[in-house]
């Protein structure tokens, strides 16, 4: 099953569902591209920036941790108070590591929410394949003209 479909169906049945209006969820590639968002407003509008920041945060934390000798496999990254904040988990889809990110607001029991998020992550890892990579070797666009490039930038105020 594709993880996007899985997220949608799983969220409906999860205990998270009743609280989900206040939790924005993202699947983020380590280069910052957001692959999935549950479209919680108004955060969804800023998802590009959230993706870039989350990927940077995670990688910086990972490199910092490399200075330690003790290594654990199951990292989580939190920036939160007792009722909300940012929570990042690694998400392994067939060997590709992505991030499962949550932006959480107004919760009474954040620990419980985080636990539910980890369980959701585990379920996704067990049930999903990563079918977004095309594996194609051909070029998507052949020759591109200068005119086509100019058109792309037509929004630019002169």
């Amino acid at each position: 099953m594709d993880y996007v479909d899985f997220f949608k169906s799983e969220l409906k049945s999860s205990d998270l569902n009743s609280k989900i209006q206040k939790i924005a969820l993202f699947v983020i590639r380590l280069d910052g591209v957001v692959l999935y968002s549950n479209e919680v407003k108004p955060l969804d509008k800023s998802k590009e920036s959230i993706g870039a920041l989350a990927a940077g945060l995670w990688q910086a934390a990972e490199l910092s941790n490399n200075y330690l000798e003790t290594k654990s496999r199951d990292f989580r990254l939190s920036f939160d108070t007792s009722d909300g904040g940012v929570y990042l988990l690694p998400l392994n889809l067939n060997g590709d590591i992505h991030l499962f990110g949550a932006m959480i607001q107004d919760q009474l029991n954040l620990g419980q929410i985080k636990n539910l998020l980890r369980r959701l992550r585990d379920k996704v890892e067990d049930n999903c394949i990563n079918k977004n990579e095309s594996g194609e070797d051909e070029y998507l666009f052949n020759d591109i003209t200068d005119e086509e490039v100019d058109n792309l930038f037509s929004f630019v105020g002169k």
Binding site: E136, D137, Y139, L140, F141, N142, I144, D146, V149
Partner: peptide, 21 residues
Amino acid sequence: VFETLKSISKLVLMNLKGGLN
């Protein structure tokens, strides 16, 4: 500024792998 950005845009887009199917 935009001349430079357009120039890299063209190269990047032409370098995109994927194949139109």
